[in-house]
Amino acid sequence: MKRELTCIGCPLGCALTVETDDGGEIHVTGYTCARGKDYAIKEVTCPTRIVTSTVPVEGGVISRVSVKTEHDIPKDKIFDVMNEIRRTSVSAPVRIGDTVIADCAGTGTAVIATKNVESL
């Protein structure tokens, strides 16, 4: 299997080609530095992303609080995570780092607040 990627390590944006042969071995070409190679391998084996969004706050000085997944989650779980975040709300006060969802969409990763919201 062959995939074309753009490296995000720096503005150079190297065009990477990743080939996985029948034996499961991964070959990367097109990178300029080691970071590019590592990135390519990660992207084809287990691509992950941080997801950020907002949820409503009840009784807070502002009406919404921003949140994020505490760690990277698998890329193919992004929309599952979003769906669960969309069903969630919290009550003020909220502090940065407070857990909003303990284990989001079965990823084993928590969703935490990224903003302080005082009570009204």
Binding site: I50, T52, T54, S66, V67, K68, I96, T114, K115
Partner: peptide, 21 residues
């Protein structure tokens, strides 16, 4: 609210509100 702030300053990836805080 997205992440990617503070890599230079704090050597970690923060969201905008976290960086501001």
């Amino acid at each position: 609210i997205h992440n990617g702030f503070g890599l230079h300053t704090f050597k970690e990836e923060l969201t905008g509100p976290e960086y501001a805080q």
